[in-house]
Design a binder for these strands. Structure first.
Lengths: 229, 229
DNA sequence: TGACTTTTATACTATTTCGCATATAAAGGG
DNA sequence: CCCTTTATATGCGAAATAGTATAAAAGTCA
């Protein structure tokens, strides 16, 4: 019985012509790395061609012109960052540990890069191009908002669970956590030593949540910088 | 009595050749604005020529090549920023007002720019070029350090004067104030509304110094987020 | 096998970019 | 009035850059 034409979409329908010599997702990640390091203007198509292993006509066929490729690369960065942080934000853990883990994960991300730490694509690379390109600006605003909202949800949940006092202002705390993330990004890219950045993280945790109780057996922590507005 | 040759340096000795058609300081400021807006790579010599009104040979004679001009432009930015903030840091005022004024002055600076807000040259433009140029990196590290140290001195003086409790940690508070500045810069350049950024400033002041006392007649403010290392 | 389809590889063009060579302009000195 | 000095103006040229035309390659389908 011939069933070829009756099948739904097979797992791999093998397209008609010559097969691709690259994997689109991988190539996009490599282009993203190049843009992330050098920015839009300083990354030439030759650089992108070398980074992806694709020649220019293939780049154009796959992603469009340089501008379109940049937008796609940045969007892929954002998607990957979301995937990285979602489980950390959702993890079951005490608020203080969770906040610290989030900031350390951000630091890890910003410190990565073979040719030196790159900071955050949103904060450094894309923000620079914001003046020239409204599409990038919209993406950057969305990213900044999303950071704040993630932290605000975190703190709101902590109020709900009693880990923060009821009169704490989640938006205010989220602003400061977001500012810490931005600052980590800038400092990491400047090459500030990791030890100093870990110190910054501790300073932020203490400032946002108050000093850790010396005696964990006491149910109520010394809450500082929490209430008000 | 002929005294021409005996005089010390006259106020304007009139140099020998054809007089300059530009004022070096002004031209440098205009080049700085161009770099500030678009970054190193995206600013061409034609752009710089148009911005300064100088043609390229004059640019080279006055400032050297593009790289050297960039470094000089960034250095001039730093010098101007220092001049702007020195009096605000030194002003005689309550700590809370002073901190707020500093942050508002930063916001004003970052919001400036004819073609949209530019953020901080250090945080956005120069940081992007840090990966490629060690000289820029050194300047950026110096700038970041200088921000932290300025705030740390401010808080240390406040401890000295009794405005902050003796066990407050000036470096920790300075880290958070610096982070607020970095965050303001990023958000301003992204085009976040000024109202929201003023809210961020208030949130930072409250988080760093604790909520303002509702009753100023009481000598001791409710100190929050202040003590502890 | 041979027509068809899609991708890759090479080479090309038009433009931009940086840096500089050369010629001209505007001042002072003797 | 001519020479020297310094700056400006024009424009050249080599290299880089973005984007594309064209042809070869590597598959499928019948």
């Amino acid at each position: 019985m011939v069933q070829k034409k009756l099948n739904g979409p097979p797992p791999s329908p093998r397209p008609r012509g010559r097969p691709r010599a690259y994997r689109p997702e991988l190539a996009l990640a490599q282009a993203r790395d190049a843009f992330w390091r050098d920015g839009f203007a300083a990354t030439s198509l030759d650089d992108l061609s070398a980074a992806t292993g694709m020649n220019r006509p293939s780049l154009y066929a796959a992603f469009g012109d340089k501008q379109a490729l940049y937008v796609k690369a940045y969007a892929s960065y954002r998607a990957e960052v979301r995937e990285t942080f979602r489980p950390i934000f959702r993890a079951e853990a005490p608020l203080r540990d969770k906040l610290r883990r989030i900031l350390v994960a951000a630091l890890d991300l910003y410190s990565s890069g073979e040719a030196g730490p790159r900071g955050c694509f949103t904060v450094l690379t894309a923000s620079s191009d914001v003046v020239a390109d409204p599409e990038i600006r919209a993406l950057v605003v969305e990213a900044l908002t999303s950071i704040d909202e993630g932290f605000a949800r975190l703190f709101a949940a902590a109020i709900e669970s009693g880990e923060l006092p009821g009169d704490a202002d989640p938006v205010r705390l989220a602003h400061m956590a977001g500012a810490t993330v931005h600052s980590l990004s800038v400092r990491a890219r400047a090459g500030i030593a990791r030890r100093d950045l870990e110190r910054l993280i501790e300073d932020a945790v203490v400032t946002i949540l108050g000093p850790a109780s010396a005696d964990p057996s006491r149910g109520k922590r010394k809450a500082q910088g929490l209430s008000g507005k």
